[in-house]
């Protein structure tokens, strides 16, 4: 795969990066580089008007508070047509926590203010008093894969899915989108939104490769990804599984 190039866009890396969300971008980049791709990461912050439609994959992390949300919300409205364009053209987009919320229709604050999202995902979020914090385990079906995913969630918003969004996974342990319907995250085409923070992809290399393969195949159809040794990934994953007493 020498000579093949990938271009990732990291949206708001300075504002939206809590609890190790950077780990997801690191996983995508390293797993592409280990396979011989040359990778360029474009950090796009608020006020940066460079086009992102040339990106092969887009990652948005989670922010920490309402301020970040407000600052990003405005900027995201301007980038909205480009992000929609990417999504419709099957560019994989990974959005975590408040990044996930902002891809939805709106976020209703505790004060009753309605912060608009970009409506890419058919979801909406309502602020809740109770913070959902802790380890979480999901059962996920993607393509022909049926896997258990572990992670950490930390959010004070309840998210609900409309008819056009599929859940990312079924909650085995933890809170999930809203603590009621047992659903976690949302999927639309190759857009994946989830509350699972940070090192989601490093501990689930198959998911990282699933996203990577989508990115590669849009650009270089028919390219297969080389298998990588995942001993370290497995050990870290197994430890959390054991910690949560979840069966694989």
């Amino acid at each position: 795969m020498q000579g093949l190039k990938l271009r990732f866009a990291h949206l708001y890396p300075d504002l939206m990066n809590s609890y190790g969300d950077r780990g997801n971008m690191i996983a995508l980049v390293m797993r592409a580089r280990w396979r011989g791709f040359s990778v360029e990461v474009m950090d796009v912050s608020a006020g940066d008007n460079r086009r992102i439609t040339g990106a092969d994959c887009i990652v948005i992390g989670g922010g920490q508070g309402l301020e970040e949300r407000m600052a990003i919300c405005k900027d995201l409205q301007q980038k909205s047509p480009e992000i929609h364009y990417c999504a419709e053209n099957k560019i994989p987009i990974l959005a975590i926590c408040s990044g996930f919320q902002l891809l939805g229709k709106y976020y209703l604050t505790a004060e009753g203010d309605r912060i608009p999202g970009i409506g890419l995902l058919d979801i909406w979020t309502i602020a809740s008093k109770r913070r959902a914090v802790g380890h979480i385990a999901l059962r996920v079906r993607l393509g022909n894969m049926n896997k258990t995913i572990v992670g950490f969630e930390n959010h004070a918003g309840n998210t609900f899915l409309g008819a056009r969004a599929l859940p990312f996974g079924k909650v085995l342990k933890g809170y999930g989108n809203n603590g009621q319907d047992g659903k976690e995250g949302a999927i639309y085409k190759n857009v994946l939104g989830t509350y699972l923070h940070g090192p989601l992809l490093p501990k689930h290399p198959w998911l990282a490769d699933y996203i990577l393969e989508k990115a590669v195949n849009n650009k270089y159809p028919g390219t297969r990804l080389k298998l990588l040794n995942s001993k370290f990934e497995k050990m870290a994953y197994q430890k959390v599984l054991k910690r949560m007493a979840v069966r694989c």
Binding site: A27, P202, K203, K231, M235
Partner: peptide
């Protein structure tokens, strides 16, 4: 440590040769 595996994984993704990492 109780999360030494995650620590090792982090080092691998930091670009350190896995032969140098011992858990």
């Amino acid at each position: 440590g109780t999360r030494g595996e995650e620590m090792s994984l982090r080092l691998k993704y930091a670009g350190i040769d896995t032969r140098k990492i011992k858990y």
